[in-house]
Amino acid sequence: MHDTVVFKNKILPYFLLAPQLIITLVFFIWPAGQALYQSFLIEDAFGFSREFVWFENFVYLFQDPEYWNSMKVTFLFSAMVAVTAMGVALLLAAMADRVLKGAGTYKTLLIWPYAVAPVVAAVLWWLMFNPSIGILPYWMKFVGHYWNHYVNAGEAMTVVVIASAWKQISYNFIFFLAGMQAIPKSLIEAAAIDGASPFKRFWQIVFPLLSPTAFFLLVVNVVYAFFETFGVIHATTLGGPDNATRTLVYKVYEDGFVGLDLGSSAAQSVILMILVIALTVIQFRYVERKVQY
């Protein structure tokens, strides 16, 4: 006797899976295969002369100091976005968790930015930080600072980190708040009776119990910073000054869509694909299994 349900029909399961499989094949596997193939080619923009060159595109990339610079920029940028977005979200969630009156309003307002389209958000920040017409540089002039992120690399990085993290704060906030509300009140009350201060209660009880959420968000935020911040960078700094904010994704765009160097651009996409696969493996293997208390 089997407990499991067995489909008698051999075709029906495949038929039911077909829509999902077709979408995956057409929109993911096929383009990925194309990118892989393209990364082994050197060809002109119109595709008249194409030459199969094996790993020459990759060798070229790894010998290019600018590629390593872009790699460094991406990791630095992602770390800063993740830390900023998660830090602020955790702080806000901890506060919102304690609010008694008007909690709904606060929560709605805090989640709101997530509904803003990335490009719109980027344009808003571009306007606010614009050295000529922006309100923030205007105010900074009063304290004697001349803001110009078109020249200053640190300031350019600050703009893209703020603009990227701002949107992600809302997302992180929802998860942190939900995580906090899932923590049994009895644990916190017991600690309070034992004389633990609110700060201590947070670090000793709430924070460890939130760690699965935090790890999940870390992966999500890093993936976000890697792959979804193109619009922000494109609208604010265009990767400049002197490549200070040119992330790997932005470089793919520049080489492929501006420069029409499809081979190199495809090789870079393949490397990014490997990176995102690695992140996904970490997410499933490590995070989902081990970080449980």
């Binding site: 520049e254 080489d255 501006v258 420069g259 029409l260």
Partner: peptide, 20 residues
């Protein structure tokens, strides 16, 4: 590849403007 070369020039000039 002049679009890329313009980009490279822009980057290099920016490094002069910011004094690096």
């Amino acid at each position: 590849n002049f679009p890329q070369i313009r980009g490279i020039i822009d980057e290099s000039l920016e490094s002069v403007w910011n004094g690096t």
